[in-house]
Design a protein around this nucleic acid. Structure first.
Length: 236
DNA sequence: GCGACAG
DNA sequence: ATCTTGTCGC
């Protein structure tokens, strides 16, 4: 949605932000509307900037192509001063302005984006993944490392691939997924234009022996390495 | 009113 | 998220 209202990205206050989230959630699509086998997949993540620059934020976008091995096709990095402080439930307004820039830095538009955070598993059905998907008009999946709302239903198995529903107010809002043995589970949710089942399928497809799927794992890792470089203590 | 609370 | 080395376990 290229013509997203200004309030959907830069609301003046939390009340306007809350109103925007309801409007965005109303336009989010929970049904599949993406290529059957997406080949160009991006992972996005935000991290604090270098120490000594506590109020700055860095966004990293990594573009991967299926079957091309572990090397990213391209990366997009951007840093700036966030207009929003961190408020649980409003993370998108803090990170999305930078994520959009980072994605714009990629040579090609991805067919699917994995986001570090929740999608529909949010108090107003508008987690960062959903928010980004609607604003950028891209299929997105939420891959969170902890719960915002809801409760796992039943006992999650210890084996990799184990799943149980994450339920809130009587309905499933995400899938709790043990992506690897011996690690805390992931919380996979529909972002925009990707159903929950398809979201879980793609997360499983992109796992490579680590807790996080490759797109998000690399975005996370490269954002951290970029910080080291910015501080002068960088690896090769 | 109190506790919970993505990154 | 971030502050941070070594350490316990498969």
């Amino acid at each position: 949605m290229t013509d997203a209202p200004q309030d959907w990205i830069h609301p003046p206050d939390l009340d306007a932000a809350r109103t925007a989230q309801h409007a965005i959630a109303a336009r989010a699509e929970a049904a599949d509307r993406l290529p059957h086998e997406p080949r160009l997949v991006a992972g996005v993540d935000c991290a604090g900037a270098a120490r000594g620059r506590p109020d700055r934020l860095r966004a990293m976008a990594v573009l991967l192509e299926r079957g091309t091995g572990p090397r990213p096709l391209a990366t997009g990095l951007v840093e700036g001063v966030p207009a929003f402080r961190y408020v649980p439930g409003f993370l998108g307004f803090r990170e999305i302005p930078f994520i959009l820039e980072a994605l714009a830095g990629l040579p090609r538009r991805p067919e699917l984006v994995l986001v570090d955070g929740h999608g529909l598993s949010h108090p107003r059905g508008c987690g960062t993944a959903t928010h980004l998907g609607v604003v950028a008009d891209l299929p997105t999946i939420g891959v969170a490392k902890s719960i915002l709302v809801g409760r796992p239903e039943g006992e999650l198995g210890q084996e990799a691939g184990s799943q149980v529903p994450l339920v809130w107010k009587g309905r499933q809002i995400a899938t709790v997924l043990r992506s690897k043995r011996g690690v805390n589970p992931l919380f996979v949710s529909s972002g925009h234009r990707v159903s929950l089942n398809t979201a879980v399928r793609h997360v499983l497809d992109w796992l490579a022996g680590y807790r996080l799927p490759e797109p998000t794992r690399l975005a996370d890792k490269l954002a951290g390495e970029a910080r080291q470089v910015a501080e002068g203590t960088g690896p090769p």
